[in-house]
């Protein structure tokens, strides 16, 4: 990878210009995300750096957009809705997904390919199509639950979104958990069984601790999918269930307010936290499976 001493001038020029090109691409990837962080502390309502900000004068900066986020009823409501929906959708996706992934990783599964393709399809089908299908079907499902089962309309709305989001999160759980199970040593469960542990006990005491990193990273994916999802929730939900991304979407489409930058910054911090967690999990998983951490 390093430039050999015998490199010709042309090779040297290419070596350095290649690095510059890569640097520019990295800049393209990361700069748009980082630039909104200082912009969110803007004391004015503009979306660019004011002269005061460039001179690093404290007057140029303020927390007023954050204050708006934390006091504005719409944003708070949206935040609450997101936090109500995502964990439950994640829980459903993780429980069903993990059990199914264990089933899928058995050595003899009939129709494995077809089943796998079906379970992963929510990730591949364009969201607008999922949203369209769910829009029609869930409306009828919801009416049925309200009219025939006599359920509370608000709860039905909530259930509809949770089910939809769980379906969207499942492919991620399946992918991450099956990936962890690939490295799983089957003789461990056999050893547990030979020592008299039942299947349930074997699962919780032997298998689960080993695949837990995969399960958690699947859960994080499912969580972020639900937390970040806007198309399906706009079609399936009602205005009462407005989530954070939905509120951002409306904000961006209609009256773009600088509060969005504050929200965006908070979400970036959240994704950094998720990323760190995921990296730690990956290392732990590799250690558990006896691979050297990278």
């Amino acid at each position: 990878m390093n430039l050999p001493i015998y490199a010709s001038t042309g090779q040297k020029v290419w070596y350095y210009s290649f690095r510059v090109i890569c640097g520019l691409i990295f800049f393209f990837l990361i700069a748009p995300i980082l630039i909104i962080i200082p912009l969110s502390f803007n004391a004015t309502d503009f979306f660019t750096f004011t002269p005061e900000m460039l001179r690093l004068q404290p007057e140029g900066y303020s927390l007023k957009h954050y204050q708006d986020f934390f006091t504005n009823g719409d944003w708070q409501n949206a935040m609450r809705n997101s936090l109500k929906i995502a964990p439950v959708a994640t829980l459903i996706a993780v429980v069903l997904g993990t059990i199914a992934a264990i089933g899928l990783s058995q050595s003899h599964v009939p129709f494995r390919r077809a089943i796998m393709a079906t379970l992963i399809s929510p990730m591949i089908v364009p969201l607008i199509i999922s949203a369209t299908g769910m829009y029609f079907f869930y409306a009828r499902l919801g009416n049925y639950m309200v009219d025939s089962l006599g359920m509370n309309a608000n709860i039905v709305e909530y259930i509809k979104i949770v089910l939809a989001h769980a379906a969207l999160g499942i492919p991620f759980v399946i992918i991450t958990v099956t990936a962890t199970l690939v490295g799983f040593d089957r003789s461990l469960t056999r050893a547990a069984a030979s020592m008299g542990a039942g299947p349930v006990r074997t699962f919780f005491k032997v298998q689960m601790p080993l695949i837990i990193p995969g399960v958690i990273s699947g859960a994080l994916f499912a969580f972020i999918t639900s937390f970040d999802e806007v198309v399906v929730v706009m079609f399936v939900g009602s205005a009462k269930n407005k989530t954070l991304p939905w509120q951002m979407f409306t904000g961006l489409r209609e009256q773009i307010s600088p509060t969005i930058l504050a929200v965006a910054t908070i979400l970036v911090v959240l994704s950094v936290a998720l990323l760190v967690t995921l990296e730690l999990l990956r290392r732990r998983s590799e250690r558990l499976r006896g691979m050297s951490p990278g």
Binding site: L96, A100, I115, S121, P122, S130, M134, A167
Partner: peptide
Amino acid sequence: ALLLIAPLLIFILITFVIP
């Protein structure tokens, strides 16, 4: 194996494939 997969498959069929 199928028994383990069944709950999820049914879930996906109802919440996703049928719609």
